Computed example of a mutant assay.
Amino acid sequence: MALTFRGAVEQDVERIVEMLADDLLGKERERYAQPLPASYLEAFQAIDADPNNELIVAVDGTGRIIGVQQVTFTPHLTHQGSWRATIEGVRTDSTVRGQGIGGQLIRYAIGRAKERGCRLIQLTTDKQRPDALRFYEGLGFTATHEGMKMKLEATEL
């Protein structure tokens, strides 16, 4: 399927949240509602204002957003003071999963990382998503580290 990739705009946020909420884990942690919680627009504005963050949407031939990912570029003292890219929040519309859209999204992110001079690209995938792990391995990623997270108490949204 031929796709166009572009930076997300504020009008895309509702569609992005819809995709984030439309999976096993997302439906438990996202709040896709009308009106959309203000926290999503605030997060979008912070991402959009940061030159080291890109919220990228994949658009099909009809103009419909069918994929999204966030790529964050970070300078590090490790690896001889190089930059790395982190891919997060990768989702494709549930009606087109399995059609190669995710692979195109990730290859686009890899291209952006190369353009930005990154020497490393990283991502995490939830252990409850074994298919995602195989997907990323098929694209050349290797599970070289054990990742850890700590949830912090959120303020009332």
Rank of each mutant, 00 (worst) to 15 (best):
M1N: 12
M1K: 09
A2K: 12
L3V: 05
F5W: 05
R6C: 03
G7D: 12
E10S: 13
D12W: 00
D12C: 04
E14Q: 14
R15G: 00
R15W: 00
I16Q: 02
E18G: 07
E18V: 05
D22L: 01
D23M: 02
L24F: 01
K27L: 14
K27W: 03
E28P: 03
R29Q: 14
R29E: 14
R31Q: 14
Y32Q: 08
Q34K: 15
Q34H: 15
P35S: 08
P35R: 09
P37G: 09
A38P: 07
Y40N: 15
Y40S: 13
L41Q: 14
L41H: 06
A43I: 06
F44G: 00
Q45M: 04
I47D: 13
I47N: 10
D50A: 07
D50N: 15
P51R: 13
N53A: 13
N53V: 06
N53R: 13
N53F: 09
N53D: 10
E54P: 00
L55Y: 03
L55F: 08
A58Q: 00
V59I: 08
T62C: 01
R64F: 06
G67H: 03
G67Y: 00
V68F: 06
V68C: 12
Q69M: 15
Q70F: 01
Q70P: 01
S82N: 11
W83N: 08
W83P: 02
R84Y: 14
R84M: 09
R84F: 07
T86K: 05
T86M: 14
G89I: 10
V90Q: 05
R91S: 13
R91I: 02
D93M: 08
S94H: 05
V96D: 05
R97W: 01
I101V: 15
G103R: 10
L105E: 13
R107L: 11
Y108F: 12
I110K: 08
G111W: 15
R112W: 02
R112F: 05
A113L: 06
A113S: 11
K114F: 03
E115F: 09
G117A: 10
C118I: 00
R119V: 09
L120A: 07
I121E: 02
I121H: 05
Q122K: 08
L123I: 00
T124C: 06
T125Q: 06
K127Q: 12
Q128D: 14
R129N: 13
R129E: 11
D131F: 08
D131V: 08
R134H: 15
R134I: 10
R134Y: 04
F135M: 09
L139C: 04
A143R: 04
A143L: 05
H145D: 10
H145I: 03
E146D: 15
G147S: 13
K149A: 15
M150L: 11
K151S: 12
L152H: 01
L152E: 02
E153C: 05
A154R: 03
E156N: 09
E156D: 13
